[in-house]
Amino acid sequence: MTPTPSGGSASLLSIDELGADGVARIMDLADHMAEVNRRPNPKVPALRGKTVCNVFFEDSTRTRLSFETAAKRLSADTMTFAASQSSLNKGESLRDTIETIGAMGVDAFVVRHGSSGAPWMIDGWTTASVVNAGDGWHAHPTQGLLDAYTVRTALGRAAGFDGVRIGIVGDVKHSRVARSTAAAFAALGADVVFVAPRTLLPPVPSMPTTEDLDGVLDDLDVLYLLRMQRERMTEALVPSLREYTARFGLTPERAARLADHVLVMHPGPMNRGVEIAVDPSELPGAMITKQVANGIAVRMAVLFDILGGGASLEKGAR
């Protein structure tokens, strides 16, 4: 174990490394954090004296603000590094950048990077903890955890997701959300199916797949829609956005078929009229704003888990 300046020692890089026990532990901790967030003064002193640095090499609104809010509610100090306003523009390397920030006394880096695997490299360069806030097409573990927490609270499934059927619909191939969210659902015991055209599935999907949304729609407890990245159109992976909506979008006709208990989820930002062609506020099971709210509680749980000494993933002992 390599101790950090203040004794923390764990990182969260992927759901697979966190493991099923770790996912369950974060879910239980998130219940405590959600209780804090319901108070008039939603702040606890748990991480006083710790510093969390957001290092974002890619644009992000909700993830960055969510992590910043989470750190502040635990009384940690926060710093934000935006690549576009940094000495990277003067040619400083990623490693030098991380070591420079680390020298200022950082306990955890929250890293978003366009290249898959970058958080693992950074984790190897620093004694601070690293939280992967999205790397390329690869992983976005806190999104997976907040999605799992949303299902757990909405369906009252604190004991696990056995028998819960979840369809993840859309561009699975290019989606780090699909990978991490499917892994988190599966870690808790859910049955997950990827619904996508063959061109938008990875070569070796981690879950069963189908191209027939209408064939599985009536069996689902959770309909998870992925963002259809418009730039995929130029790569001719789908014939047209209209055709995509007709086959894989949540149209008014499909929305009418959904039972009231079915949760509709989306990681945001939404392409209205593409993957979701109805007003989500009119769906009884729409979870989209709950996902955002739960994101704060889950990220508080993650930061407390790795900096508060509760994590089983000890850095250096992996």
Binding site: S6, G7, G8, D28, L29, D31, H32, E35, V36, V44, P45, A46, L47, K50, L74, F304, L307, G308, G309, G310
Partner: peptide
Amino acid sequence: IDASLYRDDIGLRPVAPGAVS
């Protein structure tokens, strides 16, 4: 009430919160 988020030994030993306050 669960006091684990207010303890003075956070980071020094594993903290296992009980049930939610």
